[in-house]
Design a protein around this nucleic acid. Structure first.
Length: 801
RNA sequence: GCUGCUGUGGCGAAAUUGGCAGACGCAAGAGACUUAAAAUCUCUCGGUGGAUACACCGUACCGGUUCAAGUCCGGUCAGCAGCACCA
């Protein structure tokens, strides 16, 4: 046997697959289709991370297996290449982001190829290429035409370091997602996509798809649907109504004050009529200074100021109620104002205690002198609601009363907000809209797409939150497509999430010049059968892309309502210190190093063998060696090959068991146990002193999805042909069990003996054999068996005393 | 604070979903081969006692259900993740 020179063998097979187009997916093939999708990478300058390898390895294994099972598999890859790090490199070095991107993509491509992933390289997409972002802009314009794009001046999340407006999703926890600086609030005109219009459908759609339960749950929480009521409170001093949203209309009799958000428009409207406007202005200025983080996290104490000159009237009791301004009420949720029921809401309770406001109990069951009671109970002090004992009935009743008086109705609210859809950055898709002094906002005509990024001298954004594009007169100045007069282009670009919201559609038909993809191709491939990626993308990327997809479905551009039939997520690879890998900690593992030292097959095996695929696991250099040893033992099997075209009796059971376990475990992401079973098989083969041709052939096929290079090489050398053309192997369930099995004999649940009985023996037979065993006889001596439990092929338990 | 998940050897983990706890791998120890080391091969490897057979204990902690609990139920503690004044 020759030496195992993995780098030669691996590059030989990578070239073979490339030249033969082994992994090309065929549109419209008669074979059953399987569309496996992994999250395309952002091509950063640092190259790939072992985390990428783990993320792609699962569906890589599934894809290779499915091809051997006769499927037409689409397993594509691409690059989500717009984004800040590339632009920041450009700012630092002056190199054009296009060039930076191209270099990074080249680097990623070579790394991916070295690992031997079976991607269809003829379908690569790059979100920054003209014939791709043309269609991103096209979708945006379709949304614009359908009223899903709007402009609004609101307080936005602004990162002072990146000088950019961020969506809520990009500024979770009050920190910028990219540079982790504190986010501040800033008034700005921004573009929004009306994703809230799809909130209910995004929620309902979850019932029709096969996502892991925790993924569904996170999406549900993100959408955050609540049901309740809108109630209008008349203002005593003015001909005006204050509209509020509440989930507890049943507590309406317990309202003792109202609260408006500091930004509530009614404050400005009645500026002249409010007696203490100075105090209010001072308070509001203080709130505006606070970052979102301070406002929601640090401040435990309730603050606020009463509005003097405006009083609300409880629509049910006619009682006058004071109104406060307080920053514990947010303008962005509900109506920006609430009715406060301190007896039954913990926040209102704190506020009332601090400001000495009345607390009126309307639900019995708690002790409101100590804390708010949020549970269920009998209604009291509540007029017509008195005596009702459950929340549901009380709400039903109060809604009827409100409807009769015309001052309120049932309603739903979502936590999810509309999607702030622009960045003041260069390296993104230009927003194809024009500001015309006569016609207003006008869409760039479809024929003019793509609207290209112009060259700029300086990629640095303006300090006032303006895009670098604003400085390019030749880009900004244009003619209005409607009236032909002088107009100005929108200079903001789209956020990074735009291109990734539809990339899986382009894969189906990546070179189509006339549509984002042909309907035929989409009908053939959609939905994506299995999508794997990180947990960090299940609320943002996945909700955005589901939203776009549903919109495209509504306008007839795609054939399915939901894009992804199934979604799973891999766990992180931690550094060997158990911490998250990061450059600053110096615990990052470069996949190239592993490939250099041990080969791609070892890397692939290790990332799947290291633990539960869905859980985080620390990297261990020495454990990688275990996989290396396994691969070496596979290579060494070539010296032990004997003739034989069927499994030898001594290993027949373990062969069938292994086929079954590997076949099943791959489908349920249990790669670690699939590999363990193959190791067990190899150990047993070594113990028999050899392996015959039939056994070797089967073993190579089972191992091929994990370690395709070494298995392809041995397969060829043994004269079995080209492994990627082979068929997956079958098992016989009847042969997965030995003819004799060991069972445990227990006395009252304690193990007393182990006996061999024929496989599938009935209870009488098992008892007969057990009774003949001296240890069993000893254990049962002098005892009366009152009951016996027999589990076939497992155990026999005597209950005796 | 709310929601969800997880707690098993020195380490990464298995356990057909209530039926032999610790498969497989790493690390460690002993032996073989070697001038030697590496590599490879063989054996040991949860704890306590015992020379061995073996016995007892053991899946975060306390309690319960059951012939039988890592698995189910109730409570406690710890860790992780997501959301976070959502009215």
């Amino acid at each position: 046997m020759q030496e195992y020179r993995f780098s030669e063998i691996e590059s030989k097979w990578q070239h073979y697959w490339d030249e033969h187009g082994t992994f090309r997916a065929e549109n419209g093939s008669k074979k059953p289709k399987f569309y496996a999708l992994v999250e395309f990478p952002y091509p950063s300058g640092h190259g790939m991370h072992v985390g990428h390898i783990k993320a792609y390895s699962s569906l890589e294994v599934v894809s290779r297996k499915r091809r051997l099972q006769g499927y037409n598999v689409l397993f594509p890859i691409g690059f989500d290449a717009y984004g800040l790090p590339t632009e920041n490199t450009a700012i630092k070095t002056g190199v054009h982001p296009r060039q930076v991107t191209d270099e990074n993509i080249k680097k990623f491509t070579s790394q991916l190829k070295r690992v031997g992933f079976s991607f269809d390289w003829s379908r690569v997409v790059d979100t920054t290429e003209e014939d791709y972002y043309k269609w991103t802009q096209w979708i945006f314009l379709q949304m614009f035409e359908h009223g899903l794009v709007f402009r609004d001046k609101t307080s936005v999340n602004y990162c002072p370091s990146c000088k950019v407006v961020l969506s809520n999703e990009d500024s979770q926890g009050g920190k910028c997602d990219v540079c982790h600086s504190e986010i501040v609030q800033k008034e700005k005109e921004v573009w929004y996509l009306r994703i809230t219009e799809y909130a209910d459908r995004l929620l309902q759609g979850l019932e029709t798809v096969d996502y892991l339960p925790n993924i569904k749950l996170q999406q549900q929480n993100w959408i955050g649907k609540s049901t309740g009521a809108f109630v209008n409170f008349k203002i005593a001093e003015q001909d005006e109504e204050l509209r509020i949203y509440t989930t507890r209309p049943d507590t309406l009799y317990g309202v003792t004050f109202m609260v408006m958000a500091p930004e509530h428009p009614m404050i400005e409207k009645y500026r002249a009529q409010i007696a203490n406007m100075d105090a209010l202005d001072a308070y509001r200025a203080e709130c505006a200074k606070k970052t979102e983080f301070e406002r929601t996290q640090l401040v435990k104490d309730k603050t606020g100021v009463r509005i003097e000159g405006l009083t609300a009237i409880n629509p049910l009791t006619g009682k006058q109620i004071p109104i406060y301004v307080a920053d514990y009420v947010m303008m962005g949720y509900g109506t920006g104002a609430i009715m406060a029921v301190p007896a039954h809401d913990t926040r209102d309770y704190e506020f009332a205690k601090k400001f000495g406001i009345d607390i009126i109990e309307v639900i019995k069951g708690g002790d409101i002198s100590k804390e708010a009671y949020t549970g269920d109970g009998e209604m009291v002090n509540s007029g017509e609601l008195n005596g009702i004992t459950n929340k549901k009935d009380a709400i039903e009743k109060v809604l009827k009363v409100l409807a009769a008086k015309g001052c309120g109705e049932a309603g739903v609210q979502y936590k999810m907000k509309d999607w702030a859809f622009n960045r003041q950055r260069y390296w993104g898709e230009p927003i194809p809209l024009v500001h015309c002094p006569h016609c207003g906002i006008v869409a760039v005509p479809y024929e003019e797409l793509p609207l290209r990024l112009p060259p700029v001298e300086n990629y640095e954004p303006g300090t006032d939150g303006e895009s670098p594009l604003a400085k390019v007169e030749s880009f900004v100045k244009c003619k209005c497509p409607k009236c032909g007069g002088d107009a100005r282009r929108e200079t903001d670009t789209m956020p990074q999430w735009a291109g990734s919201s539809w990339y899986f559609l382009r894969y189906c038909d990546p070179h189509n010049p006339d549509a984002l993809a042909s309907m035929d191709a989409l009908k053939y491939w959609l939905p994506v059968d299995w999508y794997n990626g990180g947990m960090e993308h299940v609320t943002r990327h996945m909700i955005y892309s589901r939203f776009w997809h549903k919109f495209l479905y509504d306008i007839g551009a795609v054939p399915t309502d939901e894009p992804y039939a199934k979604r799973t997520a891999q766990g992180l690879i931690l550094g060997s210190d158990g911490e998250k890998m990061s450059k600053s900690k110096g615990n990052v593992v470069d996949p190239n190093d592993v490939v250099d030292q041990y080969g791609a097959d070892v890397l692939r095996l290790y990332v799947l063998f290291m633990g539960d695929y869905e859980k985080a696991a620390p990297w261990s250099d020495s454990s990688v060696k275990g996989c290396k040893r396994f691969v070496d033992r596979i290579w060494a099997l070539q010296d032990m090959v004997i003739d034989g075209d069927s499994y030898r009796p001594a290993v027949q059971t373990v062969m069938h068991k292994t086929i079954r376990k590997v076949t099943e475990d791959i489908e349920s992401l249990k790669f670690n146990t699939a590999i363990a079973q193959m190791m067990t098989l190899v150990n047993e083969l070594y113990a028999t002193g050899g392996i015959n041709k039939a056994e070797l052939r089967t073993l190579l096929i089972l191992l091929y999805p994990f370690a395709p290079h070494i298995t392809s090489e041995i397969f060829e050398q043994q004269g079995f042909g080209i492994l990627s053309d082979a068929q997956w192997v079958e098992y016989d369930p009847a042969l997965c069990v030995e003819s004799e099995v060991e069972i445990v004999v227990q006395l009252c649940g304690k193990i007393k003996a182990k006996i061999m009985i024929p496989q599938g023996a009935d209870e009488a037979k098992a008892v007969e054999i057990a009774m003949a065993d001296p240890k069993v006889q000893e254990a049962l001596a002098g005892k009366t068996v009152r009951k016996q439990i027999y589990v076939q092929n497992k155990l026999l338990n005597f209950v005796a005393n």
